[in-house]
Simulated scan of single mutants.
Amino acid sequence: MTSAAAFSLSGKRALIAGASRGIGLAIAKSFAANGADTVLAARSTEALETEAAALRAQGFLASTQFLDMEKDDSIDAAAARGDFDILVNVSGTNIRKRFETYSPEEYEKIFQTNLHGLVRLTQKVGARMVERGQGGRIIHIGSLTSTSGLPYITIYSMTKSALAGLTRSLAAEWGRHNITVNCIAPGFIITDLNRQMWEAETMKHWLNHTQSIPRTGIPEDIAPLATFLAAPGAAYITGQVIAVDGGSNNTKVWPFEPPN
């Protein structure tokens, strides 16, 4: 298999849930550029259409779908849009605060957007993949909190940890149908959800002195792996939680230097 074929999505149809900005948009652009008929889905219909029109202007296949992860009928409508070979679950939200101060409403909102809605969408799209019998690819976008803990984002961390468990169990269940299920765990990727937090010099100083690649990431750091996991080259990869985090999870640096 050539390297081009390993990444080719020609003839495949992909639904990207949460594609109006950030990581989801970067993945949608990469999928379209690699040949997929890409459906960009989110609540921000105007932003979606602007991005899809730009992709079509480049000669790529791209369309839009309104999708609100807090509304079952919206999720069902997106799943009923047609047959999909690839589903990428990116949609997510976060509220940073002390655990004891989360309200029931905040708890429910984070879980509905980050987990419950994605589970319903995966059930609907995945059931059709099983019925068609032509295989498929499901890619969840987790977080470094899928495998490790950080303070003041406890509810978010719970949802992202659940995505990692869903990935492993669903891979075991649907592998017989030639459906792979994987999870990408991004590290400190700058998006609209965290941009303001990372403007603080204390945060930059901390990262630069603890992470092996001393910088924050960008959405385009995630898109190539998502494209590969959706493409023929990754046909034997499933049930994995793969970190794209500059070494944050598995490495640490310190100021010590050996004398010689």
Rank of each mutant, 00 (worst) to 15 (best):
N182T: 06
M203V: 10
A171D: 09
S161M: 10
H177A: 09
Q196K: 15
M158V: 11
S157K: 01
R128I: 12
T167P: 03
K124W: 10
L166Y: 08
K124T: 11
G136C: 03
T167E: 00
S143Y: 04
I213W: 14
W198L: 14
T216P: 09
N208V: 01
K160W: 03
V125E: 09
S146Q: 05
I153K: 00
G136M: 05
T167Y: 03
S143N: 11
P186I: 06
S212H: 10
V119L: 13
C183Q: 09
N114C: 13
Y152F: 15
R195G: 05
A185D: 11
F188A: 15
G142P: 01
N178K: 12
I139R: 11
T145I: 02
P214D: 00
N182W: 07
N208I: 10
H140R: 04
I213S: 11
N178D: 14
I179D: 07
C183G: 12
L193R: 00
I155P: 01
T159Y: 05
V130A: 02
I110N: 08
G175T: 02
F111H: 14
T180Q: 06
T122L: 08
G136N: 09
I155N: 05
L170T: 02
A171H: 04
T216S: 12
T122C: 00
G117R: 05
G135E: 03
T180V: 05
Y107G: 09
S146H: 12
Q211L: 00
G117K: 02
I184S: 02
K204Y: 07
P151F: 02
T216A: 14
C183I: 14
I179E: 04
I153S: 07
A172T: 11
L118I: 11
T202E: 13
N178V: 00
F188V: 14
G149V: 08
Q196Y: 15
S148Y: 06
L118Q: 03
E106N: 01
G133E: 01
W198M: 12
A185Q: 07
N182F: 03
I155A: 03
H205T: 14
F188Q: 14
G135S: 09
P186H: 06
T216M: 15
I184P: 08
Q123F: 14
I179A: 06
K160C: 08
S161L: 04
T154E: 15
E105M: 00
I190D: 10
A171R: 09
M197I: 15
G187N: 12
R195N: 13
I213P: 04
P151H: 05
W206A: 14
N178H: 13
Y156T: 04
K109E: 09
Y107K: 13
M203P: 04
T180E: 03
R137A: 02
E201H: 12
R132M: 04
L166M: 13
K124N: 14
A127S: 15
G135R: 06
E108G: 10
H140P: 04
S143V: 02
H177T: 02
Q211T: 11
L118Y: 01
G149I: 07
A172Y: 10
T191A: 07
